[in-house]
């Protein structure tokens, strides 16, 4: 399972990072970054990833696969 991000929709509200800093970080440009946009989520991070995804106020994040 990976995380998909809709870059056009993301506005850098950062609520994902607030919920799951081990999965999401906002870079200096306010862009959300995650190793799991490219790589599979390890099982122990699916819970935090889901919390971060569901906290996104503009539905820019989703879990895929």
């Amino acid at each position: 399972m990976r995380i998909a991000v809709d870059r056009r929709r993301c506005e850098g509200h950062g609520l994902c990072e607030g919920q799951a800093p081990e999965v999401f970080t906002l870079d200096d440009e306010g862009e959300v970054q995650s190793p799991f946009f490219e790589a599979d989520l390890p099982g122990e991070l699916t819970g935090p990833a889901d919390r971060g995804v569901s906290a996104c106020p503009v539905a820019a994040l989703s879990l895929v696969g």
């Binding site: 506005e11 607030g18 503009v58």
Partner: peptide, 16 residues
């Protein structure tokens, strides 16, 4: 954090 008071999705409050 799941509250929907700012709406949600493409029309989610831009000024939040």
């Amino acid at each position: 954090v799941h509250q929907l008071g700012f709406g949600y999705g493409e029309h989610g409050c831009a000024g939040q």
